[in-house]
């Protein structure tokens, strides 16, 4: 029956709806291009991670099914290391990783309606020498992706609320803000998204908000100031204050 075009379209629409429904339990993740580097933040539970190192200057943050996050993570790490080994670390670029190694398998997985889909919404980040050279990519579960040039990306299950959150962060952040303030603003938006509070009504917190009770706040920085090959380092959000 799915050979008939309208049946196939219906199956795809159902699949999209199913994935969106599955993603509703996910919590948002953030990536922000800062003078110090690219700051990534996610809020998990227990030992479950949402922010990961991919390669020397590359990182990844995602929400979705943990198994699918792991599959995308492994695919990205494998492709990056293969490229880095066969050519050089400078040849590992996000544009090539996304175009050739990640978006195509995601699109295939989404459209092959007899196979399980990948339930992942993600952000990829590539550190440049300056904030203007940073690359941030928002990658969707169907392989669709866009390059964000404003320096702020949020990934969440609801596209409309995701854009609201990103807009609020862009309006309230300045290049001179400390990483503690960046963390605080991200967690303020995180709370609003999780409690379905409109972002437009938010005010920056008077006291720095660096932790969420009962949750693990994960933060990392692709650090522009480091001189070695590996630029990724984990941050202790509570210690930023």
């Amino acid at each position: 029956m799915t050979e008939e075009p309208y049946r196939w379209l219906e199956a795809i629409a159902n699949r999209r709806e199913y994935i969106r429904e599955q993603l509703k339990g996910g919590t948002p993740v953030f990536a922000l291009s800062r003078p110090e580097g690219i700051f990534l933040l996610g809020v998990g539970q227990g030992l479950q991670s949402k922010v990961f190192e991919i390669y020397d200057r590359h990182a990844f943050a995602a929400l979705g099914h943990p198994v699918d996050i792991e599959r995308i993570r492994q695919a990205a790490i494998e492709a990056a290391h293969l490229e880095g080994f066969n050519r050089s670390a400078a040849d590992v670029t996000l544009r090539r990783l996304i175009s050739f190694a990640l978006s195509t398998p995601l699109k295939n997985a989404f459209e092959q309606i007899y196979a399980p889909p990948l339930i992942v919404e993600s952000i990829f980040a590539e550190l440049g020498d300056t904030p203007a050279q940073d690359v941030l990519v928002r990658l969707h579960f169907d392989g669709n992706h866009y390059y964000e040039t404003s320096g702020v990306v949020v990934a969440f299950s609801d596209p409309k609320r995701e854009e609201e959150a990103a807009t609020w962060l862009r309006q309230n952040l300045s290049p001179t803000d400390s990483l503690a303030r960046v963390t605080s603003l991200c967690l303020t938006v995180w709370n609003a998204l999780m409690t379905e509070k409109p972002c437009a009504e938010l005010a920056p917190p008077a006291q720095p908000l660096l932790q969420i009770e009962g949750r693990t706040v994960e933060a990392a920085l692709l650090d522009r100031r480091l001189s070695g090959r590996t630029r990724y380092r984990r941050l202790d959000p509570a210690g930023l204050g």
């Binding site: 991670s49 990961f52 190192e53 492994q74 790490i77 494998e78 290391h81 880095g84 080994f85 590996t230």
Partner: peptide, 16 residues
Amino acid sequence: ARTLQTAFEFYRRSQL
């Protein structure tokens, strides 16, 4: 050395 550099970093990143 190049093989080991890649192997060590690949292991650390993939296995966390």
